[in-house]
Structure formats: C-alpha cells, structure tokens
Design a protein around this nucleic acid. Structure first.
Length: 491
RNA sequence: GGCGCCAUGGUGUAACUGGUUAACACGUCGCCCUCUCAAGGCGAAGAGUACGGGUUCGAUCCCCGUUGGCGCUACCA
C-alpha cells in the first residue's frame, strides 16, 4: 500500500549515556535511521546526559562505537543536553510566562515524606500542588530572597490529553492522572520531560520514534507542546524487546550490549537485519519472493527501501538467539569473499593470529569455508589450519581417526605419492588416495578421515580434496609427512 | 494500588475494509545426498488465534468482561 510521501522528515536517536548501547536502544536507533534514510530525511544524534550522577563519557564513546559498528550514521550532532542548558531555562521561562508552569519550593525530603504518607494512607502518591496556589508575588519574593525553587508544569485540572500514535493509534489520558511534574530542578538542571520537549521543538523534529516505555510520558510532553504553541510531531512508539523469559531484556539475559555481539563474531549487517525484523515487518507484498515465500534476509539497502512505520507491530517481542545465529550464517554465506575479508582480518587481528597463506589463496579459502562458518570467530578459531601452520590438533579428532599406529604411516605414503604426482587437483588427489587405499586393501575412509585430521587438526572439514587444493601441494604434503609426530592422547 | 498498552505454534511475523484446510521464517524431528560436519533437497510434528461472553449468515479480525504480560506512576531517562 503506497504511503503518503514525506518530505525531509527530521528524526532523532536520543540515548542516555548511563550504560552501553543496548539491544533495545540499538533497534530504536535503527528504526530512526531506516526511516530517515528511506525518506531522505535527517537523523540527529542527541545525548541526553542531564543526569550527571549516572552519565559518563565512557558510555558516550560506547554508544558511538555501537552505532558505528552497526553502520548507522547520523546527519547532525552529537548534541549534548548538558551543553544546552540555556535553552531549557528559556523554555521553562516561556512556560512560566504562559502561566503553564510555576515555582515549587517543596524540598525533596518534604515530598518524599508526603509521598510515603499518602501511600500509607492508600492515596495516590501524587504531588499535592500546594505551591501552585502560591500568589505570584509571594513566590517571586521567596525566589528573590534566594530560596531554591523547582519549576513544575501546571497540568490542567480536568479534561484529557490525547494524541495519535503512528503505531498504537489514538491514546488518551485523563489529566487527573497526571501530576504537576518537575520541569526544572531546583539546581536549574532540566528533567527529561522538559529537555526532551525543548530539544524536539528546537530541532524541529517531525517524527518521534522511540521505545514504548515512553508512551505514558507522552501526554506530559503533548501538554507542553500545546502550552508552547508548538506543532505536534508524529509519535511512533516501538514495543519493547524482551528476553526469552518474556521479561524486559536486561543483563540477566546475557549479552545485551550491542558491542558484545561484535565480540561474538556477528556480522553487523546480519545483526541489523535481525533487529529490524524484531517488531517490524515489511509486509507480504514487498517481501514475497518468486516462490511466494516471505523473504527475511534483506541485503544492503533493501531494509531502507522497505522500511515503513506502518509495519511496526504493537506487541513486545522476544529476542531469539537462534534466529540471530541463522541470520549470521546467511550473511556470511551471502557475502563475497572480498566482502568477508576485512571482517575476517579483524578477527585475526583481535586473536593475534597471523595468516601465512598467500593473499589470493586466502580469498579462495574463505570461499571454501564460508558456507560452514557459524561465526566470524570461526576464521580465527577452528579454521586456523587453513590459513597458517600454527594450529592445534583437536584431541578428540586425533583419538578417533589416528589412534591406529598404521594410519600415520599410510598418510606418509599418501604424502609421498601426492608429491610425485604431476597434477594436484581435486580429481587427481582423490584418484591418488583411492588407488593407494585399494593397493593396501583398506577402506578409503581410513585415509580420508585420517588425512582430514592431519591437514586441518579437525575431525570436521569441507570435502578433503577441496581442502588439499586450498592448502596447496606443499602444505598438504608437509602435513601428511608429519602425521607420525601428531601426539595421540592416551586414554 | 492507579493509569496506559498489548495478547496468533517454542520464537519472529502474515492473514486487503469479518468469509483461508490460519500462511511464511527460525528452531525441532525424519529422510535423501555424502569422505566428516555443515550446507542443500524433500517431508513431518507443532497454534484453531489467552479465556469467557456477545454482535453477525459467518469472527484471528468488531464490542464487553476476565486473566496474563509489559510500561508509566521520581527534583532518572
């Protein structure tokens, strides 16, 4: 279904640097990014660091690293709210002047005590609005005398506040449920409620795409837009991501930092694809393949082309590691060896591994292995023997296929023959091996399995003869001749 | 507790404005292929749409209630 085209929408990702870039935040960023890129709009990165207690520069760096890893760029920013304090002060003054806000002299301690009292008495623990009743002159005098005051928003006494959410439809709240929330703390630092509106207005944002945890905060913001006389943006609240136990995804569920998926050997685009499909669907029309089946792997710019707010679902979704693993294998296979190479090299660097294979052989070897890799980590782990002579033998594989002392000697014989052969192709090596097996009256499998271990250190590998060709004659022969010295664990 | 939101197989989703044997993907299981393991091919199990009432000739879809989950309820964001 064609949508109304949008002209230059402006959206933002506004993380709070009180932690790393987590999965939920990354998906919010992704939706904003996809939306901006789809419509040729502008993505603004804004760091909401007005909670000085919990914010840190290290976390800012972590968030930027996560964005970069996922390949999400932004057009403006990063802006830091901590550096925009005058704007919030000015916005509060506007609200004050409009009679939509008032100074409050209640201290934190008093408020806590009253809240406790109200809760104990079974009353809702909302602010009792006592400072709202203060005469403006009296309030001004107290402030002039140096008494610290917070600024609170004066929520209308009756009526309801509603807005149309692009995901949830019309959402309405009775104003009686909203308390006179604090805009500016008594130390002059804005709360989230004020800074978010001040910035969203100032940055001329047209769409607010954010987590559904903000749905209940939205009326407080709508009220401010109205008091400010500012046009309302389109809100689009995105349902949350849950862990396998269906509670909100958190550290208890293991990896929740986006960067930890890099460390797991996940291809960034695969992660992006996986994340995009968590709570969003391109719709059957757009995604249907020729066979009528719904495709889910959307390479390169396809996600951008397909993305639409209309496809965002309303219910929370569960993070499924199995599906992520599947996307990862799909991407590792879909990439060309050339595309994979830098990712593989990064793994080698991280592992301190130096390949000694010739560069053109490296690409061919990646091509040989990419259909069986589960993770980029494999290239610096179980696949080491393909790229360097510095590898280990897996004890279980040795014990299974080389325990018979006769086998290594057969492998030496095989090595000698291969050395003498004029050709060294998959067909020729196979013919040589099978001929040898027949002469010695043994099953070819003995040689094949034994050679696999001698050549790769593993009991599992691609077709043996393809492995031989990938390694080249020299390494193949060397490793076969060295078979008798492979340590067999005694057990 | 109050308010808000949500509810389709184990998981992610589909099912045009009510009419389908409730579809696809991941996962699971089986078979084939085979020098191992993946991949690949083929096939299977798995939900009658949280539950209960309506409305309707007919509800996954509309209405009400219940239950459950999640969110908000701070001078956090």
């Amino acid at each position: 279904m064609p949508e109304t085209p949008l002209t230059s929408p402006r959206v933002r990702f506004a993380p709070s640097p009180t932690g790393y870039l987590h999965v939920g935040g990354a998906r919010t960023a992704l939706f904003n990014w996809l939306f901006a890129r789809h419509w040729g709009g502008t993505l603004i990165l804004r760091i909401e660091d007005t909670d000085f207690e919990r914010s840190s520069e290290a976390m800012v760096a972590g968030i930027l690293e996560g964005m970069q890893w996922l390949g999400m760029d932004w057009d403006e920013g990063p802006f830091f709210q901590s550096q925009r304090l005058p704007l919030y002060r000015a916005t509060a003054d506007k609200l004050l002047a409009a009679g939509a806000a008032y100074p409050c002299f209640c201290t934190k301690e008093e408020l806590e005590a009253r809240r406790a009292e109200a809760t104990a008495a079974g009353r809702p623990p909302m602010y009792d609005r006592r400072c709202r009743a203060l005469a403006p002159a009296a309030a001004a005098a107290r402030q002039a005398a140096g008494e610290a005051a917070a600024i609170r928003f004066a929520v209308p006494e009756g009526g309801a506040t509603s807005f149309d959410d692009a995901v949830f439809g019309t959402v309405s709240f009775n104003n009686a449920e909203l308390e006179d929330f604090v805009l500016l703390r008594s130390d002059g630092i804005p709360t989230y409620h004020l800074s978010v509106v001040a910035d969203d207005v100032d940055m001329r944002l047209t769409h607010i795409i954010r987590g559904a945890d903000h749905l209940s905060n939205t009326p407080k913001q709508v009220l401010q837009y109205q008091a400010l006389g500012a046009p309302l943006p389109v809100f689009a609240h995105v349902p949350l991501i849950l862990g396998p136990d269906k509670t909100r995804l958190s550290k208890r569920h293991g990896a929740t930092s986006v960067i930890s998926y890099k460390d797991l050997g996940i291809v960034p685009e695969a992660f992006r694809n996986f994340l995009a499909l968590l709570g969003w669907t391109p719709g059957t029309d757009a995604a249907a393949g020729a066979d009528g089946k719904t495709r889910e792997v959307f390479l390169s710019d396809e996600l951008i082309r397909l993305f639409s707010l209309a496809g965002i679902s309303k219910s929370n979704s569960v993070f499924d590691n199995d599906k992520l693993a599947w996307f990862n294998t799909e991407y590792i296979r879909a990439y060309s060896p050339e595309q994979l190479l830098p990712l593989v090299q990064a793994e080698w660097a991280a592992a301190g591994f130096l390949p000694t294979l010739a560069p053109d052989s490296i690409l061919a070897t990646i091509a040989l292995l990419q259909t069986r890799a589960r993770s980029l980590k494999d290239f610096a782990g179980v696949f080491r023997a393909y790229f360097s002579d510095a590898f280990e033998f897996e004890p279980a594989a040795v014990a299974k296929f080389l325990k018979d002392p006769a086998t290594p000697l057969l492998l030496v014989a095989l090595g000698e023959r291969l050395q003498a052969e004029p050709a060294f192709t998959e067909a020729s090596t196979e013919a040589t091996l099978r001929a040898l097996a027949e002469e010695r009256g043994i099953k070819a499998g003995i040689l094949i399995n034994g050679a696999r271990v001698a050549l790769t250190g593993q009991g599992v590998a691609p077709s043996l003869f393809a492995v031989m060709v990938a390694l080249g004659r020299e390494r193949t022969v060397d490793r076969l001749l060295a078979a008798p010295s492979i340590p067999v664990a005694m057990s």
